[in-house]
């Protein structure tokens, strides 16, 4: 049985880590981009970012003043039990979000869309988002928080089978060029792409591809993995770098996730996770042990299953 106190304390620590500590996989990717960059202004920007990550860790302050919109991904092993049940879990995550907003501090970004009411704690109607996944076996809960930033860099389009790979490439480039100018997408970024599903599922897949997969990770389908590589190169050959200055650093990595869709369509979404790729993960075991990490490891074989039955279930 996992206690609510343990859940809330872990969630508050995750909020702090996500805001302050750049994940190692993204840092390694950005260092590689900085080493390869030869545009003088783009290079200056990347070097300043690397210095900024150090300053954030040394000072214990958020990497970026816009600390994004905190959200939660909860994945439960099939044997996990929570003291108080899922309603208690959701209350703990809302408390952790509010507490961390004043403790870190984070920017109180969340407001009512019409009345602009701000509770100064990043909690409100539908905020923070809490999404769920399940895995066969295991008495653990994986808590992942993502503080995705940005009003810019995300788009959706209904493509069709006749658009093909050429159409996918076109929409990919359109998204990067549109939001890359003046650096509105806060590039170079992890670019997540959703293909298929329905409109809402496609957006969810693409956002998760950006936020829940790490730099260097590849889709298990070898042809999709090859497309990930190809799109990364394509994006970095636009001639645009950080802040929209001349350069070649747009894409730190490209992650694609797919879902089965209507036979007539090929939905596509593009999502840019920004220079402050805020994510932090912890596994809380049934015996109370907590293990922190930065890879959500969300997309398991089970999450991507395409069969009716699952052998372990």
């Amino acid at each position: 049985m996992i206690t609510i106190d343990r859940l809330q304390a872990t969630a508050e620590e995750l909020m702090r880590r996500a805001a302050i500590e750049i994940p190692d996989d993204y840092l390694t990717g950005l260092k590689a981009a900085a080493a390869a960059e030869d545009g003088d202004l783009s290079s200056f920007v990347l070097d300043a970012m690397l210095e900024n990550y150090d300053a954030a860790k040394e000072d214990g302050r958020a990497m970026c003043g816009d600390t994004g919109c905190p959200r939660w991904y909860v994945k439960m092993g099939n044997e996990a039990r929570i003291d108080g049940g899922p309603v208690a879990l959701e209350a703990a995550l809302r408390r952790a979000t509010a507490n961390a907003t004043s403790a870190v501090p984070l920017r109180p970004n969340r407001v009512h869309p019409l009345w602009r009411t701000d509770h100064d704690n990043n909690v409100g109607i539908g905020a923070p988002e809490i999404e769920y996944g399940f895995e066969p076996g295991g008495d653990w809960i994986d808590l992942t928080t993502v503080h995705k930033g940005g009003l810019f860099g995300t788009d959706y389009r209904m493509l069709f089978p006749s658009d093909g790979i050429q159409g996918i490439k076109r929409f990919f480039l359109d998204s990067l060029v549109a939001f890359g100018k003046r650096g509105l997408a806060c590039q170079p970024a992890i670019i997540g792409i959703g293909l298929g599903g329905s409109k809402d599922a496609c957006m969810v897949l693409g956002k998760r591809a950006a936020c829940l997969r790490v730099v260097g990770d590849r889709n298990p389908d070898p042809k999709i993995a090859a497309l990930e590589d190809e799109l990364k190169v394509l994006g970095n050959n636009i001639g645009m770098g950080a802040m929209g200055f001349v350069g070649k650093s747009m894409v730190i990595d490209c992650n694609i996730e797919v879902g089965y869709c209507h036979t007539g369509g090929m939905q596509m979404s593009v999502h840019a996770f920004c220079l402050s790729s805020r994510r932090a993960v912890a596994r809380i075991h049934g015996d109370g042990r907590v293990e922190y990490r930065t890879n959500p490891d969300w997309f398991t074989d089970y999450q991507r299953r395409e069969t009716v039955e699952w052998p372990q279930a």
């Binding site: 209904m158 493509l159 159409g167 076109r170 636009i238 001349v246």
Partner: peptide, 23 residues
Amino acid sequence: ENTKIAANLDAAYEGTKPAVLKR
């Protein structure tokens, strides 16, 4: 910077095609 980058955009888009359904 936009002007400089624009000069390369046609080359960057080579091998792509516009979507069959416009917006």
